[in-house]
Amino acid sequence: MKELPRPRRRLPAAAALLAVLALAGCGFDTESSGGGPGEPETEGITLYSGRIPAAIGGAVDRYEAEADRDVQVRYADTADLAATLVEEGDASPADVFFAQEPGAIGAVADQGLLAPLPAEVLRLVPARYRDPEGRWVGVTGRARVVAYNREAVERSELPPSPFGFTAPAWKGRVGWAPASDSMQEYVTALRARYGDERTREWLEAMVANDAVDYPDNVAIRDAIAAGEIDAGLINHYYVAQAIAAEGEDYPVGVYFPRRGLGSLMLLTSVGVLESSDRKEEAIDFVRSLLEKPSQEFFTTSSKEYPLARGAEPDPSLSVPLATIPNVSGDLVEIEQLQATIELMQEAGAL
Protein backbone atom coordinates (compact mmCIF):
# COMPACT_ATOMS: atom_id res chain seq x y z
CA MET A 1 0.00 0.00 0.00
CA LYS A 2 1.13 3.48 -0.85
CA GLU A 3 2.47 5.59 1.97
CA LEU A 4 -0.13 8.17 2.98
CA PRO A 5 0.83 11.82 2.57
CA ARG A 6 2.25 13.18 5.79
CA PRO A 7 -0.26 15.91 6.69
CA ARG A 8 -3.03 13.35 7.05
CA ARG A 9 -1.25 11.60 9.87
CA ARG A 10 -0.74 14.82 11.72
CA LEU A 11 -4.38 15.54 12.19
CA PRO A 12 -5.04 13.48 15.33
CA ALA A 13 -1.73 14.63 16.77
CA ALA A 14 -2.61 18.25 16.09
CA ALA A 15 -5.99 17.80 17.68
CA ALA A 16 -4.40 16.23 20.73
CA LEU A 17 -1.91 19.05 21.00
CA LEU A 18 -4.65 21.64 20.72
CA ALA A 19 -6.65 19.83 23.39
CA VAL A 20 -3.68 19.73 25.76
CA LEU A 21 -2.91 23.38 25.10
CA ALA A 22 -6.49 24.38 25.71
CA LEU A 23 -6.56 22.54 29.02
CA ALA A 24 -3.12 23.75 30.04
CA GLY A 25 -4.00 27.31 29.08
CA CYS A 26 -6.96 27.09 31.37
CA GLY A 27 -4.75 26.11 34.26
CA PHE A 28 -2.69 29.26 33.84
CA ASP A 29 -5.86 31.26 33.55
CA THR A 30 -6.96 30.29 37.01
CA GLU A 31 -3.64 31.04 38.59
CA SER A 32 -3.44 34.50 37.15
CA SER A 33 -7.03 35.53 37.67
CA GLY A 34 -7.42 33.95 41.07
CA GLY A 35 -11.00 32.90 40.53
CA GLY A 36 -10.63 29.52 42.20
CA PRO A 37 -12.77 28.55 45.14
CA GLY A 38 -11.57 28.62 48.70
CA GLU A 39 -8.53 30.81 48.42
CA PRO A 40 -9.19 33.95 46.43
CA GLU A 41 -5.98 35.64 45.37
CA THR A 42 -7.34 39.05 44.49
CA GLU A 43 -8.46 41.46 47.15
CA GLY A 44 -12.20 41.48 47.04
CA ILE A 45 -15.48 39.68 47.13
CA THR A 46 -17.28 37.47 44.65
CA LEU A 47 -20.83 38.39 43.72
CA TYR A 48 -23.39 36.09 42.08
CA SER A 49 -25.73 38.45 40.32
CA GLY A 50 -29.09 37.57 38.86
CA ARG A 51 -29.18 41.18 37.70
CA ILE A 52 -27.37 42.19 34.52
CA PRO A 53 -24.35 44.53 34.45
CA ALA A 54 -26.37 47.55 33.33
CA ALA A 55 -28.68 47.17 36.32
CA ILE A 56 -25.99 47.05 39.04
CA GLY A 57 -22.77 48.26 37.39
CA GLY A 58 -22.83 51.79 38.82
CA ALA A 59 -23.34 50.55 42.37
CA VAL A 60 -20.60 47.93 42.06
CA ASP A 61 -18.16 50.47 40.59
CA ARG A 62 -18.86 52.88 43.44
CA TYR A 63 -18.15 50.22 46.06
CA GLU A 64 -14.95 49.19 44.28
CA ALA A 65 -13.73 52.79 44.21
CA GLU A 66 -14.68 53.69 47.76
CA ALA A 67 -13.60 50.47 49.46
CA ASP A 68 -10.59 50.01 47.16
CA ARG A 69 -11.65 46.43 46.63
CA ASP A 70 -12.40 44.29 43.60
CA VAL A 71 -15.77 42.72 43.03
CA GLN A 72 -15.79 39.64 40.80
CA VAL A 73 -19.21 39.05 39.36
CA ARG A 74 -20.88 35.99 37.88
CA TYR A 75 -23.89 37.13 35.89
CA ALA A 76 -26.60 34.59 35.08
CA ASP A 77 -30.29 33.95 35.44
CA THR A 78 -31.32 34.31 39.12
CA ALA A 79 -32.87 30.85 39.24
CA ASP A 80 -29.80 29.28 37.61
CA LEU A 81 -27.57 30.97 40.18
CA ALA A 82 -29.78 29.81 43.04
CA ALA A 83 -29.56 26.24 41.75
CA THR A 84 -25.78 26.63 41.38
CA LEU A 85 -25.44 27.89 44.96
CA VAL A 86 -27.40 24.87 46.20
CA GLU A 87 -25.13 22.48 44.27
CA GLU A 88 -21.98 24.26 45.41
CA GLY A 89 -22.96 24.23 49.06
CA ASP A 90 -20.00 24.97 51.33
CA ALA A 91 -17.63 25.04 48.36
CA SER A 92 -19.23 28.12 46.82
CA PRO A 93 -16.80 30.84 45.79
CA ALA A 94 -19.62 33.38 46.18
CA ASP A 95 -19.69 35.87 49.04
CA VAL A 96 -22.84 37.76 48.08
CA PHE A 97 -25.97 36.74 46.17
CA PHE A 98 -27.97 39.49 44.45
CA ALA A 99 -31.33 38.07 43.40
CA GLN A 100 -33.73 39.57 40.91
CA GLU A 101 -36.68 37.58 42.29
CA PRO A 102 -37.64 37.06 45.94
CA GLY A 103 -38.38 33.35 45.50
CA ALA A 104 -34.79 32.51 44.58
CA ILE A 105 -33.20 34.15 47.59
CA GLY A 106 -35.84 32.58 49.81
CA ALA A 107 -34.88 29.16 48.45
CA VAL A 108 -31.19 29.76 49.08
CA ALA A 109 -31.98 31.00 52.58
CA ASP A 110 -34.13 27.94 53.29
CA GLN A 111 -31.19 25.70 52.43
CA GLY A 112 -29.31 27.38 55.27
CA LEU A 113 -26.84 28.95 52.86
CA LEU A 114 -27.26 32.59 53.96
CA ALA A 115 -25.62 34.17 57.01
CA PRO A 116 -27.66 36.51 59.21
CA LEU A 117 -27.10 40.18 58.47
CA PRO A 118 -26.23 42.59 61.30
CA ALA A 119 -29.10 44.67 62.68
CA GLU A 120 -27.49 47.96 61.64
CA VAL A 121 -27.64 46.86 57.99
CA LEU A 122 -31.15 45.48 58.26
CA ARG A 123 -32.36 48.72 59.83
CA LEU A 124 -31.42 50.61 56.68
CA VAL A 125 -34.64 49.46 55.04
CA PRO A 126 -38.18 49.34 56.47
CA ALA A 127 -39.13 45.98 58.01
CA ARG A 128 -41.61 45.16 55.26
CA TYR A 129 -38.80 45.06 52.68
CA ARG A 130 -36.56 42.47 54.35
CA ASP A 131 -36.50 38.88 55.56
CA PRO A 132 -38.17 38.57 59.01
CA GLU A 133 -35.27 36.30 59.98
CA GLY A 134 -32.72 38.83 58.80
CA ARG A 135 -31.00 36.67 56.17
CA TRP A 136 -31.60 38.97 53.23
CA VAL A 137 -32.52 42.56 52.64
CA GLY A 138 -34.41 44.24 49.81
CA VAL A 139 -32.44 46.67 47.63
CA THR A 140 -34.91 47.91 45.03
CA GLY A 141 -38.59 47.42 44.29
CA ARG A 142 -40.25 46.56 41.02
CA ALA A 143 -43.96 47.26 40.78
CA ARG A 144 -46.35 44.97 38.97
CA VAL A 145 -48.47 47.26 36.86
CA VAL A 146 -50.63 47.36 33.76
CA ALA A 147 -48.94 48.59 30.60
CA TYR A 148 -51.09 49.70 27.68
CA ASN A 149 -50.84 51.09 24.17
CA ARG A 150 -51.69 54.78 24.46
CA GLU A 151 -52.77 54.95 20.83
CA ALA A 152 -55.18 52.04 21.05
CA VAL A 153 -56.57 52.43 24.56
CA GLU A 154 -57.84 55.40 26.56
CA ARG A 155 -56.65 55.27 30.12
CA SER A 156 -60.25 55.56 31.30
CA GLU A 157 -61.09 52.32 29.50
CA LEU A 158 -58.68 50.34 31.66
CA PRO A 159 -60.29 48.29 34.44
CA PRO A 160 -59.73 49.36 38.06
CA SER A 161 -57.99 46.03 38.75
CA PRO A 162 -56.52 43.19 36.66
CA PHE A 163 -59.63 41.20 37.58
CA GLY A 164 -61.37 43.36 34.98
CA PHE A 165 -59.30 41.92 32.13
CA THR A 166 -61.57 38.89 32.10
CA ALA A 167 -64.35 40.99 30.54
CA PRO A 168 -65.32 40.10 26.94
CA ALA A 169 -64.13 43.51 25.74
CA TRP A 170 -60.55 42.45 26.49
CA LYS A 171 -60.68 39.09 24.73
CA GLY A 172 -57.33 38.39 23.06
CA ARG A 173 -56.03 41.90 23.80
CA VAL A 174 -54.08 41.32 27.04
CA GLY A 175 -50.59 39.86 27.32
CA TRP A 176 -49.09 38.11 30.34
CA ALA A 177 -46.03 35.96 31.09
CA PRO A 178 -47.16 33.08 33.32
CA ALA A 179 -43.70 31.48 33.20
CA SER A 180 -41.97 34.59 34.53
CA ASP A 181 -41.06 34.84 38.18
CA SER A 182 -42.67 38.19 38.64
CA MET A 183 -46.03 36.92 37.39
CA GLN A 184 -45.77 33.90 39.66
CA GLU A 185 -44.96 36.10 42.63
CA TYR A 186 -47.95 38.19 41.73
CA VAL A 187 -50.24 35.16 41.64
CA THR A 188 -48.82 34.06 44.99
CA ALA A 189 -49.80 37.44 46.42
CA LEU A 190 -53.27 37.12 44.91
CA ARG A 191 -53.70 33.77 46.65
CA ALA A 192 -52.68 35.30 49.95
CA ARG A 193 -55.12 38.16 49.58
CA TYR A 194 -58.11 36.50 47.89
CA GLY A 195 -57.63 32.77 48.49
CA ASP A 196 -56.95 29.94 46.07
CA GLU A 197 -60.53 29.66 44.78
CA ARG A 198 -60.85 33.28 43.64
CA THR A 199 -57.33 33.22 42.19
CA ARG A 200 -58.02 30.06 40.23
CA GLU A 201 -61.25 31.55 38.86
CA TRP A 202 -59.36 34.61 37.68
CA LEU A 203 -56.60 32.52 36.05
CA GLU A 204 -59.15 30.32 34.28
CA ALA A 205 -61.11 33.34 33.13
CA MET A 206 -57.92 34.95 31.79
CA VAL A 207 -57.09 31.79 29.84
CA ALA A 208 -60.67 31.57 28.56
CA ASN A 209 -60.45 35.21 27.52
CA ASP A 210 -57.43 34.37 25.31
CA ALA A 211 -54.80 36.18 27.37
CA VAL A 212 -51.71 36.07 25.14
CA ASP A 213 -48.77 34.12 26.55
CA TYR A 214 -45.28 35.73 26.41
CA PRO A 215 -41.96 34.43 27.73
CA ASP A 216 -41.07 37.60 29.64
CA ASN A 217 -41.85 41.21 30.43
CA VAL A 218 -39.74 42.66 27.62
CA ALA A 219 -41.67 40.62 25.08
CA ILE A 220 -44.96 41.93 26.48
CA ARG A 221 -43.76 45.52 26.36
CA ASP A 222 -42.52 45.18 22.79
CA ALA A 223 -45.75 43.47 21.74
CA ILE A 224 -47.75 46.37 23.17
CA ALA A 225 -45.49 48.88 21.45
CA ALA A 226 -45.91 46.98 18.16
CA GLY A 227 -49.68 46.96 18.55
CA GLU A 228 -49.78 43.17 18.74
CA ILE A 229 -51.79 43.45 21.98
CA ASP A 230 -53.33 46.44 23.70
CA ALA A 231 -52.42 45.88 27.34
CA GLY A 232 -50.32 43.61 29.51
CA LEU A 233 -49.37 42.66 33.06
CA ILE A 234 -45.78 43.77 33.45
CA ASN A 235 -43.15 45.31 35.76
CA HIS A 236 -43.22 49.09 35.79
CA TYR A 237 -39.58 49.82 34.97
CA TYR A 238 -39.48 48.06 31.60
CA VAL A 239 -41.77 50.76 30.32
CA ALA A 240 -39.99 53.55 32.24
CA GLN A 241 -36.68 52.50 30.66
CA ALA A 242 -38.16 52.40 27.18
CA ILE A 243 -39.63 55.87 27.64
CA ALA A 244 -36.23 57.09 28.86
CA ALA A 245 -34.57 55.59 25.77
CA GLU A 246 -37.19 56.33 23.10
CA GLY A 247 -38.60 59.61 24.34
CA GLU A 248 -42.04 60.73 25.40
CA ASP A 249 -43.54 59.53 22.12
CA TYR A 250 -43.10 55.89 23.14
CA PRO A 251 -46.56 54.44 22.60
CA VAL A 252 -46.71 52.44 25.84
CA GLY A 253 -48.05 53.90 29.06
CA VAL A 254 -48.07 52.58 32.62
CA TYR A 255 -51.10 52.37 34.84
CA PHE A 256 -51.09 51.52 38.57
CA PRO A 257 -54.54 50.02 39.15
CA ARG A 258 -55.92 51.10 42.51
CA ARG A 259 -57.88 48.02 43.45
CA GLY A 260 -57.53 44.27 43.66
CA LEU A 261 -53.75 44.12 43.99
CA GLY A 262 -53.62 45.96 40.72
CA SER A 263 -50.10 46.96 41.55
CA LEU A 264 -47.73 45.02 43.74
CA MET A 265 -44.14 45.64 44.82
CA LEU A 266 -41.62 42.84 44.15
CA LEU A 267 -38.18 43.10 45.71
CA THR A 268 -34.69 42.58 44.39
CA SER A 269 -32.60 41.50 47.33
CA VAL A 270 -29.14 40.58 48.57
CA GLY A 271 -27.78 38.12 51.10
CA VAL A 272 -24.35 37.11 52.35
CA LEU A 273 -23.31 33.48 51.95
CA GLU A 274 -22.70 31.47 55.12
CA SER A 275 -19.74 29.77 53.39
CA SER A 276 -18.01 33.10 52.70
CA ASP A 277 -14.69 33.74 54.41
CA ARG A 278 -14.99 37.43 53.64
CA LYS A 279 -18.21 38.13 55.48
CA GLU A 280 -17.04 41.52 56.78
CA GLU A 281 -16.38 42.80 53.28
CA ALA A 282 -19.53 41.17 51.98
CA ILE A 283 -21.58 43.00 54.59
CA ASP A 284 -19.80 46.24 53.71
CA PHE A 285 -20.83 45.68 50.11
CA VAL A 286 -24.47 45.08 51.11
CA ARG A 287 -24.39 48.25 53.18
CA SER A 288 -22.98 50.24 50.27
CA LEU A 289 -25.87 49.10 48.04
CA LEU A 290 -28.27 50.68 50.54
CA GLU A 291 -26.39 53.96 50.80
CA LYS A 292 -27.80 57.02 49.11
CA PRO A 293 -25.56 57.24 46.00
CA SER A 294 -26.15 53.58 45.07
CA GLN A 295 -29.86 53.81 45.70
CA GLU A 296 -29.88 56.90 43.49
CA PHE A 297 -28.03 54.98 40.77
CA PHE A 298 -30.65 52.22 40.84
CA THR A 299 -33.58 54.56 40.56
CA THR A 300 -32.17 56.89 37.93
CA SER A 301 -30.68 54.17 35.71
CA SER A 302 -33.24 51.41 35.90
CA LYS A 303 -36.24 53.38 37.22
CA GLU A 304 -36.77 50.96 40.09
CA TYR A 305 -37.99 52.06 43.50
CA PRO A 306 -35.17 52.53 46.04
CA LEU A 307 -36.04 50.77 49.30
CA ALA A 308 -33.57 52.26 51.81
CA ARG A 309 -35.01 54.70 54.32
CA GLY A 310 -34.72 58.27 53.09
CA ALA A 311 -33.99 57.36 49.45
CA GLU A 312 -36.04 59.29 46.89
CA PRO A 313 -37.55 57.54 43.87
CA ASP A 314 -36.83 58.90 40.39
CA PRO A 315 -39.08 61.91 39.67
CA SER A 316 -40.73 59.97 36.81
CA LEU A 317 -42.17 57.51 39.35
CA SER A 318 -45.26 59.44 40.30
CA VAL A 319 -46.91 56.76 42.44
CA PRO A 320 -45.40 56.81 45.96
CA LEU A 321 -43.66 53.65 47.18
CA ALA A 322 -45.65 53.46 50.40
CA THR A 323 -48.97 53.14 48.54
CA ILE A 324 -47.91 50.01 46.68
CA PRO A 325 -48.52 46.76 48.55
CA ASN A 326 -45.60 44.31 48.66
CA VAL A 327 -45.07 40.61 49.16
CA SER A 328 -44.29 40.13 52.81
CA GLY A 329 -41.64 37.74 54.05
CA ASP A 330 -43.77 34.67 54.58
CA LEU A 331 -45.14 34.85 51.06
CA VAL A 332 -41.83 34.01 49.45
CA GLU A 333 -41.89 30.61 51.10
CA ILE A 334 -41.04 28.01 48.54
CA GLU A 335 -44.02 25.85 49.38
CA GLN A 336 -46.20 28.83 48.50
CA LEU A 337 -44.50 29.28 45.16
CA GLN A 338 -44.83 25.60 44.35
CA ALA A 339 -48.50 25.70 45.22
CA THR A 340 -48.81 28.72 42.92
CA ILE A 341 -47.23 26.82 40.04
CA GLU A 342 -49.59 23.91 40.60
CA LEU A 343 -52.58 26.22 40.74
CA MET A 344 -51.49 27.94 37.52
CA GLN A 345 -50.98 24.59 35.81
CA GLU A 346 -54.42 23.36 36.92
CA ALA A 347 -55.98 26.56 35.64
CA GLY A 348 -54.29 26.00 32.27
CA ALA A 349 -52.20 29.16 32.55
CA LEU A 350 -48.87 27.32 32.57
Binding site: C26, D29, G36, T84, E87, S92
Partner: peptide, 24 residues
Protein backbone atom coordinates in the same frame (compact mmCIF):
# COMPACT_ATOMS: atom_id res chain seq x y z
CA UNK B 1 -25.29 19.63 32.23
CA UNK B 2 -23.77 22.65 33.97
CA UNK B 3 -25.33 21.86 37.36
CA UNK B 4 -24.10 18.28 37.10
CA UNK B 5 -20.54 19.49 36.61
CA UNK B 6 -20.89 21.97 39.48
CA UNK B 7 -22.11 19.09 41.65
CA UNK B 8 -19.24 16.74 40.81
CA UNK B 9 -16.45 19.30 40.53
CA UNK B 10 -17.09 20.91 43.92
CA UNK B 11 -17.29 17.51 45.59
CA UNK B 12 -14.63 15.49 43.80
CA UNK B 13 -12.11 17.83 42.14
CA UNK B 14 -12.40 21.31 43.71
CA UNK B 15 -9.27 22.68 41.95
CA UNK B 16 -11.02 22.11 38.61
CA UNK B 17 -14.00 24.21 39.61
CA UNK B 18 -14.18 27.71 38.13
CA UNK B 19 -11.60 26.95 35.45
CA UNK B 20 -11.87 27.20 31.69
CA UNK B 21 -11.00 23.51 31.64
CA UNK B 22 -14.28 22.64 33.34
CA UNK B 23 -16.18 24.83 30.90
CA UNK B 24 -14.47 23.05 27.99
Amino acid sequence: VALALVFFATRLVPPLYQTTALLV
